[in-house]
Amino acid sequence: MNVGPPPVDGHGKLKSRRLAAGTVWYRIGHRRYGTALHFSTGAAARWNDPLDSYGVLYLADAPATAFAETFGHDVSEQYPPATDKFVTVTELTERHLYRIKTGAALHLGLLQGAGLAALNLDVRLLATVDYALPQRWSRWVYDAPAALDGILYPSRLLPDRENTALFDRCRDRLEEEDLGTLAQWRCSATGQDILDILDAQGWGLV
């Protein structure tokens, strides 16, 4: 049996979490855009609105998660299991890492952990590469009476990490900081840099 579509109502079963002002995420963007605050529309992303009436900003909980989501998205289709994969210095130089922070509290729907179980769903909703069904669930969360600001869900590439999809209704509560190119990025608190991320996720550099 496949994961079912959302009900007409049933929002009382939807779990949610409030995130305090100052919550931080990360996102990688190409330097030509000059901003990471891009709210996606169309059919090409998991939680986009099937009716195209709102945009969705995809964020990661850490730089390593953002890297996996950006460069690892199609790895299973491009590389056989346990074979070498490579990223170029040019690709790392062309892309910047951004820190995104909310200046006010946000209220997000939970499509992870017990939040899935409460809706009689499972991880198939999060792993399918056919986005039609998760997009319908995105619209269902968006239409909840609580006027939620987005969705919390696990990373498909790093299942122990967390991603966030924010609806454009919270656009004015977000701030961004350009941390520079991926090639030059280094975390001042931990000393981690892009080479540590490449090594941990099995990438070679050319």
Rank of each mutant, 00 (worst) to 15 (best):
N48D: 13
P154K: 10
A114L: 05
D196N: 06
Q112N: 02
L116D: 09
L158E: 05
D149K: 09
W47C: 00
R139L: 08
T190I: 11
Y79C: 01
I197F: 01
V8E: 12
Y33L: 12
D160S: 11
P50K: 02
N163R: 12
V8L: 07
K13H: 07
E177F: 05
A44D: 11
L152T: 11
E177L: 14
A117P: 01
L157Y: 01
D9M: 06
L57V: 06
S188R: 11
A104R: 03
P154G: 01
A44S: 12
T65D: 00
D199L: 05
L182R: 00
I194A: 02
L126S: 04
T23S: 08
T164R: 07
G103M: 06
L119Q: 07
A114Q: 02
G22K: 13
Y58R: 03
H107K: 07
D160N: 14
L19Y: 11
K13D: 04
F167K: 12
H38F: 15
E176C: 07
K15S: 09
N2H: 10
Y26S: 04
G191E: 11
R136C: 14
S76K: 07
P145F: 06
A117G: 00
D61E: 03
V129H: 09
H73W: 14
L205Y: 10
L106H: 03
L121D: 12
R31S: 08
Y58S: 00
W137V: 00
S53G: 07
C187V: 10
D52I: 08
A20Q: 15
G10M: 04
H11A: 02
V3K: 08
V56R: 08
L59F: 14
A66G: 00
Y79H: 01
P63A: 05
R169M: 15
R46E: 00
R156I: 10
L111H: 13
T164H: 10
A104M: 07
T128Y: 07
L195W: 13
L111V: 04
L37D: 13
W137H: 10
Y153T: 02
L37E: 15
A132W: 04
T181E: 04
L148K: 11
R31M: 14
G150K: 14
L119R: 03
L37S: 14
L195M: 07
D122Q: 13
S53M: 04
S16N: 15
R18S: 02
F71G: 00
S155L: 12
R31V: 12
A45M: 12
L19K: 14
Q184S: 10
R17C: 08
E177Y: 01
D122L: 02
W47G: 05
F86C: 05
D196C: 10
P50Q: 02
Y54C: 11
L19I: 12
P159Q: 08
K15T: 06
H30F: 14
L110A: 04
A200C: 10
G202F: 11
G191C: 09
Y33E: 05
A165Y: 15
